[in-house]
């Protein structure tokens, strides 16, 4: 796995410059978070890395295969949980038996073995997102792009999903870019947090979290300190209405 490097990247939509001269390095095997308010350009940067949006400048080190976890689980409604995982794996692993084994394990890893034959309409929002996670990790990619994957979920469901995510990530150590506006998610999951601000978007602050993220809690000293600094920064730069 290689680092992913964005150098002097720019992107405009209809004359509006969203990103200009943007530089970023995603360290291989680490979880990097782009944190910012809605509309700051986080998703644009994610789309540039994923090849979903063209841009000017240089983007290097992006692997051929990328996994995605979005806010909407984007499951095929006509397929069961197993079928949804099989759908993305078919073109990658030709042997049916091998695929079956991998899928069964992936479903077990997100605690949904009992729901392997269930259709998406039979799953809760949290369960559907767990399937989306299982799909991202089962796919033989080196990079996972996550765009607000925990948005709209209640606190308890989110906490469980974060646990599942870390457990899955621990096994694969894929490079992850998490895009979110939630400070708690960023602090609990990331190795590095890049706070985006301004227009065009720029990195306004950078935080490293060196503590063991599998045991990390928001009440831990360093996590609480980073949380507080980011929160205070947002509070300071947000214009008072």
């Amino acid at each position: 796995m290689k680092d992913i490097v964005l150098k002097d990247v720019s992107k405009s939509y209809d004359g509006l410059t969203v990103v200009e001269g943007f530089n970023l390095t995603l360290e291989a095997g680490k979880i990097t978070c782009l944190l910012g308010v809605s509309g700051v350009g986080k998703t644009t940067i994610l789309n540039i890395i994923g090849g979903l949006a063209g841009s000017q400048g240089s983007v290097s080190g992006v692997p051929e295969r990328i996994s995605y976890i979005f806010q909407n689980p984007t499951l095929l409604p006509n397929m069961t949980v197993e079928g949804n995982l099989d759908f993305v794996l078919r073109s990658q692993i030709k042997d049916k038996e091998e695929r079956k084994k991998i899928i069964a394990e992936a479903i077990q890893n997100v605690g949904l073995s009992e729901f392997a034959k269930a259709y998406p309409y039979q799953l809760s929002a949290g369960m559907a997102q767990r399937v989306s996670m299982a799909r991202a990790f089962v796919y033989p990619s080196e990079l996972i792009l996550m765009d607000e994957p925990f948005r709209g979920l209640d606190v308890a469901t989110k906490a469980r999903l974060l646990e599942y995510f870390l457990a899955l990530w621990q096994k694969s150590k894929k490079t992850v870019l998490l895009v979110t506006h939630n400070i708690d998610e960023a602090v609990l999951l990331s190795d590095k947090i890049l706070v985006l601000g301004g227009r065009p978007a720029r990195i306004s602050a950078e935080y490293f979290l060196n503590s063991d993220k599998f045991a990390r809690k928001l009440s831990d000293k360093d996590a609480a300190e980073v949380f507080g600094k980011i929160y205070d920064w947002f509070a300071a730069v947000t214009p008072k209405s």
Binding site: N72, F87, S91
Partner: peptide
């Protein structure tokens, strides 16, 4: 759902599977 179509393309699912599945 456009999101599902995009997902299939992003995961580089084959054209035959996109049509039939």
């Amino acid at each position: 759902d456009k999101g599902v179509i995009d997902m299939a393309k992003l995961y580089k699912v084959g054209a035959k599977d996109i049509v039939t599945r």
